[in-house]
Design a protein around this nucleic acid. Structure first.
Length: 500
RNA sequence: GGUCACAUAGUCUAGAGGUCAGGACGCGUGGAUUUCAUCCACGAGACUGAGGUUCGAGCCCUCAUGUGAUCACCA
């Protein structure tokens, strides 16, 4: 503890005297094949915390559970980070001087530190089986409900240990927790938290298979990789005192902790793969832009203190401050994400938008019309890329529709007046030589003038006749321009027949 | 159940003892519009409760309630 305090003072002095300590943060996921937005946000905040200070962001794969690791699931991590634009300075593939960055490749490193702890008595071997331990624990808590259960193996003599060892009995290594006193740790978002040592369990550090547990590997690696800010989910908050005790046992400096509240779904439960909750990749497949998702999740638990809400990743690097992270859990909802997505779509350079939108256009659409014009019409009004087919299919073919669509009170239009207007429209359109939005609109204006009617009385039925739907990107003349003169004439005549 | 944490409208949030409790999404109304959307204007909607401290409490304290996390040889 004293060492830790000294280190903080030392570091603060260093910072003040310009000999600035490089901020190093890490994202340490276990490969489960599923990157939910909570994980992504943890990565994002870790990245931002490093980058805003010109520090380094490290990726470390925590795959110490051989049963759980799924093949290819590391790929999900790489591709998600790449898609999100979160680049790591050190990690698998890119390498770095603190490597390897995959825990399963670091096995031999941990043995040394386990032995150190065993030697100093800060850890002990436990030869009990899981079942034995559970039974003992149950009996103990019946007899002494107020006392913390402590494994008998912690009192074992060296002789006993050697005997069991030579008998080849398998064991785990557990952390020895002081019997009395309390442990205090500091978290940048939650402040100082103190817990009584007797409420802490003597967690396993090394499993029977010789692999370290997450809890142990994490501390060792964070230290060896010189991580200055440990940014992770709130679920580790209650383990933090145990980590602190571990750091102290080694005499290592304690990093800055930043625990993040959870992102929950609408029913207040955790996001889960099993329940089919959207992963980052799912959101992308649903037609959301990575930049919009990043923007949205950044704001779920953090705000810049101003009323700005639109941010790119670069903006966030400039404006992010870990001090402004919230303490309470947040609920993920689509409505605001969708709104932000529209903002990000509108902010895209047209060429980029058109390229991406083109992936969503049907072959029929591409064959029949100039999709660049379509892109210009829809960019402003698109909420997600998923909406493209439904918003553009009428360009290819007028869907079956109800005559009542021609009825619009404000436009002073109904099926009868519509029929008349559409018939009168035909000669105006026929006479247009250079067919485009302006000339078509001009022709419609002429008709309106000669009829002396409300604009809508002409424009409304024209749009319905050309599209067959109540809401379209662009008005009548814009649609006419896109589908061309021939198709326009055909649709108008078809509508007149339909209305007879 | 033990321990730890959190608590402002449906949702995300601002608020560092004195503000008509601010903003955004969503919702509603009206205007405008080449429909819808955008846009503009307006509107409904919140400090979990009870005590205390204080001249004054959303902010500090206590208790209650609710929610979450943790109590694995999972991470």
């Amino acid at each position: 503890m004293i060492i830790a305090v000294e280190y903080h003072i030392f570091r603060r002095m260093e910072n003040e005297n310009s000999g600035k300590v490089m901020v190093r943060t890490r994202f340490a996921p276990s490969p489960t094949g599923y990157m939910h937005i909570g994980n992504l946000r943890t990565a994002l905040y870790a990245y931002l915390t490093a980058k805003r200070d010109g520090g380094k962001f490290i990726l470390r794969i925590e795959d110490t559970d051989s049963k759980r690791t799924v093949e290819d699931s590391v790929e999900v991590i790489y591709s998600s980070l790449k898609l999100a634009g979160i680049e790591y300075d050190e990690g698998p593939v890119v390498g770095g001087v603190y490597g390897p960055y995959i825990q399963s490749e670091r096995r031999e490193i941990y043995a040394k530190y386990i032995n150190e702890l065993l030697g100093s008595g800060k850890a002990f071997r436990c030869f009990c089986t899981k079942e034995e331990l559970e039974k003992e624990k149950e009996e103990f808590s019946k007899m002494f409900p107020d006392k913390p259960f402590r494994d008998k193996c912690r009192e074992m003599t060296n002789e006993e240990v050697s005997r069991k060892l030579s008998d080849g009995i398998s064991f785990v290594v557990r952390q020895r927790i002081p019997e009395a006193g309390s442990t205090t740790f500091h978290d940048m978002v939650f402040g100082s938290i103190t817990v009584e040592n007797n409420t802490l369990d003597e967690q396993v550090l090394l499993k029977a298979d010789g692999l370290p547990t997450y809890n142990f590997a994490n501390v060792v690696d964070d230290h060896l990789m010189e991580i200055t800010h440990v940014i992770r989910g709130y679920e580790y908050l209650s383990s933090a005192p145990k980590y602190n005790l571990l750091y102290e046992s080694f005499g290592w400096n304690i990093p800055e902790y930043i625990h993040l509240p959870h992102i929950l779904r609408e029913d207040g439960k955790k996001l889960s793969k099993r329940e089919g909750d959207a992963s980052f990749q799912d959101l992308i497949d649903l037609g959301y832009l990575p930049s919009a998702v990043i923007n949205y999740i950044a704001m779920l638990g953090w705000n810049p203190g101003t009323e700005e809400e639109f941010f790119t990743l670069d903006d966030l690097v400039q404006k992010f401050t870990p001090e402004r992270i919230n303490k309470s859990n947040a609920i993920f909802t689509y409505s605001k994400l969708t709104w932000l997505n529209n903002l990000h779509i509108k902010a895209m350079p047209f060429e980029e938008f058109h390229k991406k939108a083109s992936e969503c256009y049907s072959d029929d659409l591409k064959a029949k019309v100039d999709t660049e014009m379509v892109s210009r019409l829809i960019q402003e009004r698109l909420e997600t890329f998923r909406q493209i087919p439904e918003k553009t299919e009428f360009f290819v073919k007028v869907p079956p529709y109800d005559k009542e669509l021609y009825t619009h009170k404000k436009m002073k239009s109904d099926p009868d007046s519509a029929k008349v207007m559409l018939e009168k429209m035909i000669p105006y359109f026929e006479s247009i030589g250079d067919w485009n939005n302006e000339t078509v609109f001009g022709a419609l204006q002429e008709l309106i003038q000669s009829e002396g009617c409300k604009a809508g009385t002409v424009l409304w039925p024209a749009r319905i006749a050309l599209s067959g739907v109540s809401a379209t990107p662009g008005g009548a003349s814009e649609i006419a321009h896109v589908i061309g003169k021939e198709e326009t004439m055909r649709r108008i005549k078809e509508a007149v027949e339909f209305l007879k």
